[in-house]
Computed example of a mutant assay.
Amino acid sequence: MTTLSGKTLLITGASRGIGRAIALRAARDGANVAIAAKSGVPNPKLPGTIHSVAEEVRAAGGQALPVRCDIREEDEVRAAVAATVDAFGGLDILVNNASAIWLRGALDTPMKRFDLMHQVNARGTFLVTQACLPHLLEAPDPHVLTLAPPPSLDPKWWGPHTGYTLAKMGMSHVTLGLAAEFRDRGIAIDALWPKTIIATDAINMIPGVDPAMCRRPEIVADAAHAILTRPAREGTGRFLIDEDVLRAAGVTDFSPYAVDPSKPLLPDLFL
């Protein structure tokens, strides 16, 4: 299958950035997209809301359901999943994209920030996946795709920002564990991570990053599309890199994904 036509996706953190790009790529196939995020009303500091992305999804050819959902709140998550299934008759794909970032050392990490990252990243990924699993188990070709890096114990990723690395690697370990648990149940549970830094609002949290040295979110969206259109029983528990996925799919020219093709690219964290 090379299209997501008629498939139903629930995407967390889909009001901007990579989540929005994945939603729009699915919409071009005619998919049903539940846009789950906290951004229900415009924020002067951050572009995009669940409603603005829903309009873009419909304009691109998909069906859209904007769902305001804080993935730290179990009741909101279960209500969002129920609303998605009610609206579209089922659920085929979950994309765990929502994430919180704070790249500081231990002495500069308030516990409020530490708790937020763990509630959103590791716990949120587990909670949303848990809520979706009963519906995914009924789908003919179900996928869970989490935006998380390959697991690593390399101290160079832990020393500078233990709190963030622990929370982000938590998403990776949730992927590892659930893929093993459901290996024989037909759900592909994989992770995807960019080879380079992606130009999203999150780069404002990374000191000294020039957006011109980044790639656009569309590269991650195209890689996600390539993964999600493969048969679920083809593999699970994989930690995939966007550029590698697209090379395997026959892409050779990556310059269109660059914000400024004349600039060198910055490698992403954890690679």
Rank of each mutant, 00 (worst) to 15 (best):
N121W: 01
P140Y: 04
L145A: 02
V128P: 02
T125W: 13
T125Q: 14
N121I: 03
L137S: 01
A148C: 06
A139G: 02
A148F: 03
L116Q: 15
R123S: 07
L147M: 14
L127P: 09
H118M: 11
T125A: 15
L145I: 07
F114A: 06
L127V: 14
Q119E: 15
P142T: 07
P110D: 07
P150N: 01
T129G: 09
M117G: 11
A122I: 06
A139Q: 03
L137G: 14
A139S: 14
T146F: 05
M111P: 02
V120K: 05
L127T: 12
V120Q: 06
L153V: 00
A122G: 04
A131V: 10
M111I: 14
T129S: 15
G124V: 11
P110W: 08
D141Q: 14
A131D: 12
V120C: 10
M117H: 10
F114W: 14
F114R: 00
K112S: 15
H143I: 10
P134N: 13
V144N: 11
L133V: 15
Q119W: 07
T125G: 15
P151A: 06
L145H: 07
A139R: 02
G124P: 09
F114V: 05
H135R: 03
P142E: 04
T125R: 09
F114D: 03
P150Q: 06
L133R: 05
P110R: 12
P134M: 13
S152L: 00
E138M: 08
V144C: 09
L147S: 08
K156T: 04
M111Y: 13
L147W: 06
A139N: 10
L136W: 06
V128Q: 02
P142M: 03
K112Q: 14
V144E: 03
P150S: 10
L137R: 08
A131F: 03
F126S: 09
T125M: 10
P149C: 02
S152C: 01
M111R: 14
P150A: 12
A122C: 07
M111L: 15
